[in-house]
Computed example of a mutant assay.
Amino acid sequence: MNEEACEQLQTLWDELEMSRLDLSWLEPHVKSALNMKQYLEKATKVKQLKQDLLILEREINAMKENLAETEQAFEMTRANLIKEQLGFGFQEKDLNTEIGYGKPELYI
């Protein structure tokens, strides 16, 4: 039911109430029809929120997969680093130091 139909129904209901007839049997149906617009708005919003939730859930799952792959690559790289450092007797050196051919002599 669109907004115009709701307004017409409300006007008709107000006019019927002035007639002082016993409309108690009809009142729940009229109230329900008048609340239909609100129900449809809420139903649309709930549907959109459910869709948003599904999209976010997919994104979370993709991120979890990416994290698992990254953690696996990290562990493999760490294992390779340890293997290279310890397995072959690698000694890390500071390559930024000046090359010298001995200590300079002190002249007194």
Score class of each variant (00 low, 15 high):
20 R>C: 09
104 P>V: 08
58 R>H: 06
80 N>G: 04
84 E>A: 05
9 L>A: 05
36 M>G: 12
6 C>S: 05
104 P>D: 15
6 C>V: 07
67 L>P: 02
98 E>S: 12
4 E>R: 03
84 E>R: 04
23 L>A: 06
14 D>I: 04
48 Q>H: 03
36 M>P: 01
2 N>L: 00
105 E>G: 04
69 E>Y: 11
27 E>Y: 03
61 N>T: 06
18 M>D: 05
80 N>D: 13
3 E>Q: 12
39 Y>P: 00
45 K>V: 13
18 M>G: 11
72 Q>F: 12
23 L>S: 09
51 Q>E: 10
108 I>C: 10
104 P>M: 00
1 M>I: 05
47 K>P: 09
73 A>Q: 10
61 N>P: 03
66 N>Q: 14
68 A>I: 06
93 K>T: 12
102 G>A: 03
88 F>K: 12
44 T>M: 15
100 G>R: 04
25 W>K: 05
25 W>T: 06
70 T>V: 09
34 L>D: 00
77 T>F: 06
73 A>D: 12
50 K>E: 12
19 S>F: 10
26 L>P: 02
55 I>V: 02
99 I>M: 10
2 N>F: 01
108 I>M: 15
35 N>V: 02
24 S>P: 07
76 M>T: 10
79 A>I: 07
26 L>A: 13
71 E>S: 06
37 K>V: 15
69 E>V: 15
99 I>Q: 12
41 E>C: 11
108 I>T: 10
17 E>H: 04
43 A>C: 10
14 D>Y: 06
27 E>W: 03
16 L>H: 09
8 Q>D: 10
56 L>R: 04
58 R>D: 14
9 L>D: 01
16 L>Q: 09
14 D>V: 06
59 E>W: 00
36 M>N: 12
1 M>Y: 06
51 Q>N: 11
57 E>H: 08
75 E>P: 04
66 N>H: 12
5 A>Y: 03
27 E>H: 13
37 K>N: 08
86 L>G: 00
16 L>V: 10
72 Q>C: 15
73 A>C: 02
26 L>R: 07
49 L>E: 09
89 G>Q: 05
82 I>F: 15
2 N>H: 03
42 K>Y: 08
44 T>C: 11
96 N>L: 07
102 G>N: 00
21 L>D: 09
18 M>Q: 14
63 M>Y: 07
81 L>A: 02
12 L>M: 09
5 A>I: 14
